[in-house]
């Protein structure tokens, strides 16, 4: 453990985060705004990586969990007028319940079958939001009376702190015995069971943890945006972005999810002058990266260091 804290990657990460925390003193509000969104997306991708990279669960519906967190928090705010922290906790709770509900089919299904179930969960959530438009805001989205802050700097620092803490916890989990058992269960469930591990308990816990961070991040994101809408937190396109970010950054690394998400969003901003074509160019870049380096951006960094 001691060795880990003095390792190069660790020092590099701490250094980057330290510089990142000082950014509000040097750069414009606009960059802070871009990075704020990117940091919340980073947590989405890291949570997804815990499920996929470690437990091997093909979750095509990260936005089911994100959406539950976002709408749970948003509706608590707009309908019940509860204080913001309470709303965020309600959102996180809703997401955890949703995560456990997803874990039940995951105990029986794998691969494309589970993928489809998670996809259908997103579609159903979307339908429910539209059908109960009276309380959810429907197609139009939910406008929320409260936001975290109007100013960019505090919003940025909240998001950075949240990403750092979440990333540290998820990373620690992935490197713990728990993470190793998950990985074993994902790769060879029969052997893992034969070794005496309770796979059921571990899988449910993995879904709950992933849901907790997805939900928290979704809740914080809507309190940053001041609005929750299907196309912002539930749409399948958002889920696709989360998955692509995790694979692009480097799966089974946790940190890779953050790198991928930040890369995708920052690249999208830099390519903004291309207008409509920016998404196309980002998709091409992502495809090239995963074809050339299956371990993603993090893999590329590592490869350069070893050669």
């Amino acid at each position: 453990m001691k060795k880990f804290f003095s390792s190069k990657p660790f020092i590099l990460t701490i250094g980057t985060l330290a510089i990142a925390s000082l950014l509000p003193f040097g750069v414009s509000d606009y960059i802070l705004g871009v990075l704020t969104t990117a940091f919340y997306f980073a947590v989405f991708s890291m949570s997804w990586d815990l499920l996929f990279g470690y437990a091997g669960e093909v979750n095509f519906g990260p936005t089911f969990l994100i959406g539950l967190g976002a709408y749970g928090a948003g509706m608590a705010d707009s309908l019940l007028n509860l204080p913001v922290p309470v709303c965020i906790l309600i959102g996180a709770l809703a997401a955890v319940i949703g995560g456990v509900a997803l874990a039940i089919p995951a105990l029986r299904l794998t691969g494309p079958y589970l993928g489809l179930i998670t996809l259908v969960a997103v579609l159903l959530l979307q339908q429910v939001i539209v059908i109960f438009a009276g309380v959810t805001g429907g197609e139009i989205g939910l406008s929320m009376p409260d936001v975290l802050s109007v100013n960019s700097a505090p919003n940025y620092e909240y998001a950075l702190a949240f990403m750092t803490v979440s990333g540290a916890i998820l990373f620690a989990i992935s490197r713990s015995n728990f993470g190793l058992i998950l990985q074993a269960a994902g790769q060879d469930p029969i052997a893992a069971r034969a070794l005496g591990f309770n796979i059921t308990k571990h899988k449910i816990a993995a879904f709950a943890i992933s849901a907790l961070f997805s939900g928290l991040s979704g809740a914080l994101l809507v309190f940053y945006l001041g609005t929750a809408s299907v196309n912002a937190v539930v749409d399948i396109a958002i889920g696709v972005r989360v998955i692509i970010a995790a694979v692009l950054g480097g799966r089974r690394t946790i940190i890779g999810g953050a790198i991928g998400a930040i890369f995708l969003i920052v690249a999208g901003e830099i390519l903004r002058p291309l207008g409509q074509l920016s998404t196309l160019v980002v998709a091409i870049m992502a495809l090239i990266v995963i074809m050339v380096s299956p371990d993603g951006l993090l893999g590329m960094l590592r490869a350069r260091r070893t050669t």
């Binding site: 606009y30 969104t37 960019s152 945006l225």
Partner: peptide
């Protein structure tokens, strides 16, 4: 791109970065 998230970040960008005098647009109520 028909996304309220993109719209919000672009609105903030235009106000804070470009210092636009006013913002005009959108045909989507949400």
């Amino acid at each position: 791109h028909l996304s309220s998230t993109d719209a919000v970040s672009s609105f903030q960008r235009m106000v804070k970065e470009d210092h636009v005098v006013a913002v005009v647009g959108t045909f989507v109520s949400e």
